[in-house]
């Protein structure tokens, strides 16, 4: 395999530099006033108004270090990510550069102009996780009835010879015993 080049955006967050593939990033924006969203899952830190549209802000700290980052504030820089119609902003401390850089052999980072390895992160995982977390909030709110039932009852019946389920309604037998 030859040299693998990546179009990346290099940004700083929590004192370290990271790179994200440019194809995920729609634009670099400055956050407006960030409204907190009560009941939102932890990674969803708020929403702001971008040209009349509502854009959720995700906690980028989870992506780069597994720890929650600082709360997003008005004036912070952010990467605007769009994935399958889901738009989200990822707060960063600073955007360093947009460049075409060589990928490290193991594919986990890129090598910047001064020969340093910058770890490559995938913003799409953050967006996907946020969507899943958000859906889970709703599931919990509605699903109390389901929780205690689904775990055991979906197991196949142990003994198919007793009470085996024939398609009911086809042998004149429409009752359940």
């Amino acid at each position: 395999m030859g040299v693998d080049l990546k179009n990346v955006i290099v940004f700083a967050l929590g004192g370290a530099r990271h790179a994200a593939e440019l194809r995920w990033v729609r634009e670099v924006v400055t956050l407006g006033f960030v409204t907190e969203i009560p009941t939102a899952p932890p990674g969803l830190t708020g929403a702001f108004n971008l040209r009349g549209n509502l854009v959720p802000v995700l906690d980028t700290g989870v992506l780069v270090g597994g720890r929650p980052g600082p709360s997003p504030r008005q004036g912070d820089g952010a990467l605007l990510i769009e994935l399958d119609g889901v738009m989200a902003a990822l707060r960063v401390d600073k955007v360093d550069e947009v460049a075409t850089l060589q990928q490290t052999p193991d594919g986990t980072g890129v090598i910047d102009s001064r020969g340093r390895v910058v770890p490559l992160v995938d913003p799409s995982t953050l967006v996907r996780r946020a969507v899943a977390d958000s859906l889970a909030v709703r599931g919990d709110a509605d699903g109390e009835l389901a929780l205690d039932l689904t775990a055991d009852s979906m197991r196949p019946t142990r003994d198919p010879t007793t009470g085996a389920k024939t398609p009911p309604g086809f042998d004149g037998d429409t009752t359940l015993g």
């Binding site: 969203i37 009941t39 939102a40 959720p56 738009m87």
Partner: peptide, 14 residues
């Protein structure tokens, strides 16, 4: 009125 979008609309209260 603005739409919440796919990330926020699952939240039941809004």
């Amino acid at each position: 009125v603005k739409q919440l979008g796919p990330l926020l609309s699952p939240l039941p209260l809004f």
